Amino acid sequence: MITIPSAQLIEEIERSEVDYMRDRMIAIQSRQGNPEGIEVARFGNATCYYSKTMPWASFNTVKGFRSNDLDAIDAILDFYRSNNRKPLFEIVPSLVDANALKRLSERGFYPSGFHTSLYIEPSSLIEGLSDDIRIRELREEEFDSYASIHCRGTGLSDDGIPYVAANNRVLYDRPGWKFYLALYRETPAAVGVMYMKERIASLTFAATLPEFRNQGLQQSLLLRRIREAAIQNCSLVVGQCSFLSQSHRNMERIGMKIGYVRTSWVEG
């Protein structure tokens, strides 16, 4: 059983986050005509994601950055500036030293927030499910329903529903991806997504409709996905969330532990 995060575990957690985002972005890019204007570039260890139509930080992020990528900083910045976009650097403790942070600061970047990566071994899971909750895999024809919960659960406008549906539908048949629908007393109320690669599962997204919060839906979705990861012989499950958010609390309640808290560096 893993009890204390090691250097190897930290790298495995970060790699799982890089892998799921890369696969997601490549899938969206493969839509006919690349309507979201997706580009993925690699500079040293750093993978850079960009979307022309989606300006949010999660789609314009630098993942996997290391101290030995100092010479690539200007090339990374040129990649985003040529696309008229300001990137977000995800900085993982122990993988980036003071010199790299100083260089980012000299380029006008500063730490703007914190994000937690948690982990659990599937075999250490203790399960439990309310009688009011039923969870099943999402059907291919249900992506409009998925997108509705996705948008309303995260505060996005309903105008985004067709775009969210299209950008997630392309993941449905890709290896490693699984979508789940949670029903509260048989009413669709929450969704969760998972990506598996090389025996590591990433809990990539989850949302609950506001009117169904505080009913245990997210904990139930966590349990279901972790159970599936165990069935698929995954040795590690990783989840990401804002530090001390409700998602963070839910993950700790079902036994997940903090692997690290990374900082988000943005340009001033």
Score class of each variant (00 low, 15 high):
Thr187Gly: 13
Glu186Leu: 08
Thr208Arg: 00
Tyr172Val: 09
Leu221Gln: 09
Asn214Arg: 07
Arg199Lys: 08
Arg174Leu: 11
Gln215Tyr: 09
Asn214Gly: 10
Ala182Ile: 01
Arg169Asp: 09
Phe179Trp: 09
Trp177Lys: 03
Ser220Gly: 04
Ala189Cys: 07
Leu171Pro: 02
Ala201Phe: 12
Leu221Met: 11
Glu211Met: 13
Arg169Cys: 06
Ala206Glu: 06
Leu217Val: 10
Leu223Cys: 11
Leu171Ile: 04
Asp173Trp: 03
Gln219Met: 15
Arg169Trp: 04
Asp173Leu: 04
Leu209His: 14
Phe205Cys: 07
Ser220Tyr: 06
Gly192Phe: 00
Val191Arg: 06
Asp173His: 12
Arg185Thr: 13
Met194Ser: 15
Trp177Gln: 11
Thr208Ser: 15
Lys178Val: 15
Tyr184Pro: 08
Leu217Trp: 01
Ala189His: 06
Leu223Val: 10
Leu222Ala: 11
Gly192Tyr: 06
Leu171Asn: 15
Leu203His: 05
Ala189Tyr: 02
Met196Glu: 08
Met196Lys: 07
Lys197Glu: 03
Ser220Thr: 13
Phe212Gln: 05
Pro210Tyr: 03
Tyr180His: 04
Ala201Asp: 04
Arg213Trp: 12
Val170Leu: 12
Phe179Ile: 06
Ala190Trp: 00
Arg224Gln: 12
Thr204Leu: 03
Gln219Asn: 09
Pro188Leu: 01
Met194Trp: 06
Gly176Glu: 08
Leu203Phe: 04
Leu209Ser: 09
Arg169Met: 14
Gln215His: 15
Leu223Pro: 12
Arg169Glu: 13
Phe212Gly: 01
Leu181Pro: 03
Ala189Gln: 08
Ala189Met: 03
Pro210Asn: 03
Val193Cys: 07
Ala207Val: 02
Phe179Met: 06
Pro210Asp: 01
Leu217Ala: 07
Phe205Gly: 13
Glu211His: 10
Val193Asn: 15
Leu183Met: 13
Arg213Ile: 00
Pro175Met: 12
Leu171Cys: 14
Trp177Ser: 09
Thr208Pro: 03
Phe212Ile: 00
Leu222Gln: 15
Asp173Gln: 09
Asn214Trp: 13
Tyr184Arg: 14
Arg169Tyr: 15
Val193Arg: 13
Ile200Ser: 10
Phe212Asp: 01
Pro175Ala: 13
Lys178Glu: 06
Ala182Asn: 08
Gln215Trp: 10
Arg174Phe: 14
Arg185Tyr: 07
Pro210Val: 00
Asn214Ile: 10
Asp173Ile: 11
Gln219Phe: 14
Ala189Ile: 00
Ala182Pro: 06
Glu186Pro: 11
Gly176Arg: 09
Gln215Ile: 02
Thr187Leu: 04
Ile200Asn: 08
Leu221His: 03
Ala189Asn: 15
Met196His: 09
Gly192Ala: 13
Ala207His: 02
Ala206Trp: 00
Tyr180Ala: 08
Gln215Glu: 08
Pro175Leu: 11
